[in-house]
Amino acid sequence: MKRKKSCISWTGIAFLAPALAFIVVCNVIPFVWNFVLSFQEWDGFHEAQFAGFANYLAIWKDTLVQKSLLNSIIYAVCSTAGGVLLGLFLATLIFKLGGKEGSFFRLVLYSPAMLPTAVVGMMFVFFYNPEMGLLNQFLKAVGLGDLTNVWLQSKSTAMACIIFVAIWKCTGSVMMLCFAAMQTIPGTLYESGKLDGASFGKQMRHITYPLIKPMILLSAINTLGSQYKSYDLIFTMTQGGPGNLTSTVPIYMTKTAFNFGKFGNAASVGVVFTFVVAVSIILVRTLLKGEEYEL
């Protein structure tokens, strides 16, 4: 019996080896290398010099790092909250739809998630264009010309506009995950709910949402992680500007490493940012943790 267990274990390890090698090469080694680099001064060409904690100390003196960190947190938290709430709401609206109309709405609502982010960014740059953009033209057409704005240049609207696009883009994925989870709930639960006099709203609140809570948590963590890493959307829309108004950590890191040749500095910001992302994810897990029901 013992010998058999040992044999299965080796086979399992052998099957896991390629995936393990992939993870080590693509995740672990770059992370460790980035951590080591964060204690060095390196311009990408000359020999790296040990710099101790200088790169980390520089972070606290550099207001741009702090601003980029704050922008990243605002962007990730707001777009995740918006995306998850809206995705859940849309899933609620369509989950009872069957047949062709159900497929149609799922396709329409999920389609933003299928578009390349750079394309979405460019599309919304035209949408927000102050002169010929759809938004300002629409506002003028309906007699709200006073509300027209230079959306991506104004301090009060630039980041909000980008967050709106991020929500528009990620909502479809959340909706599909929640919709799929809702499909697994047995119809008998709703039937007994109905017999007890539960309205649609009460059914959702007391049956659907508690049962799909693990999926909501999963989609929230997934969305949060990907929004923190977001680079392409912001770069195509504003490149972090005007000035540094919409600069986020990934944009700051790219600029610092590849434009200024300060790879060590960028790496230290990356380490701090990893810590911030990890804390955020733990917070979300804690906030959404609660009773879980098994079907």
Binding site: Q153, K155, Q239, G240, G241, P242, G243, N244, L245, K255, N259, F260, G261
Partner: peptide, 19 residues
């Protein structure tokens, strides 16, 4: 420097006109 070039290219006008 690269930082000066970056400032002039991307931040000078926003600082001058907006900030």
């Amino acid at each position: 420097t690269a930082e000066m070039n970056e400032y002039r290219a991307n931040q000078l006008m926003p600082d001058l006109i907006l900030n």
